[in-house]
Amino acid sequence: MSRSVLVVGEPRPTGLVPASREAVAAARLAAEGGAVAGVLLGGSPEAVTEFSRGGVTGLWVGSDASYAERRIDRWVPAILAAAKSTESEVIVLASTGFGRELAGALAVAWDAAAATSVTELTPTDEGLFVAMPVLGGRATSKLRLAGPRAVVAIRPNAFGAPAMSGEAAPVESLSAAPPTPTLAGRRVGFEANAASQGPDLSSASIVVAGGRGLRAPENFHLVEELAEALGAAVGASRAVTDAGWKPGTYQVGQTGRSVSPQLYIAVGISGAIQHLVGMMSSRVIVAINSDPGAPIFKIADYGVVGDLFLLLPALTAEVRKARASG
């Protein structure tokens, strides 16, 4: 039985958050042949192009700059207006920090069953069956979201984004002006991430993370160079952020970010459970460590034991060579 599905696109300065494109794939599964509309609030022209060619059947755009503040009391009414216009029964978002904020608010405002971090989605007559990692990626939970409405936030890298189509879907403007904020709170400042040249840690498809094995902050560039060669995001263990070698935003683990990239390379990280719960759901894990007994090797797919000060430059050079030759 087909149904209409709405995808909420999350803009970023250079277009769409990658997981929003992947959300279209999940939405198509949920729609079972029904319409898959997109809604984009406050995105750049590049985002409109990317979204409208990214597999949706139609795109609703709210172009007011005020959406950039990411106020839930503006976004939720606008999303619900789009859901109403498209008669959608399911709303799909990217399970980013903001995506989860929206999912929670939408669950109550739209009176819908909701799930985040979704990695699998199967529509049935009894509702949407969704799967998500729980307990730090050590287990998978499957939920049934019974109708009539469901909100699903999908985990980055879990669904392959549909191929870009040559033809853009029809784009319509949301008729109403952005909803006036009804709740208190003011955004008073913004501190851009320092030189965020690499991809975002939470949603990157490759992460290279460094730990105490690097011995000193001045050696961390070895990790950054490998990450750059791979087009990967840079992460760190708690030992590194606690020691102040890298800011807390780099931390992967229980008290930092949870990541689930296609490839996770742990360099000089012994693998305390604190760290493991933040990266165990990565698809492929490579560990490079001088201690063959390090717990990280128990969960790694590939292990390299040795001197990382020799191994890393060699690996970076090899990666550059391999990518240059395609």
Binding site: I72, A105, L183, G185
Partner: peptide, 18 residues
């Protein structure tokens, strides 16, 4: 680890939530 409760609770209370 769903991360939805803070904003869901805010919505249920009619308060701003982050």
């Amino acid at each position: 680890e769903a991360g939805m409760l803070p904003t869901a609770l805010a919505q249920a209370l009619g308060h701003p939530g982050f």
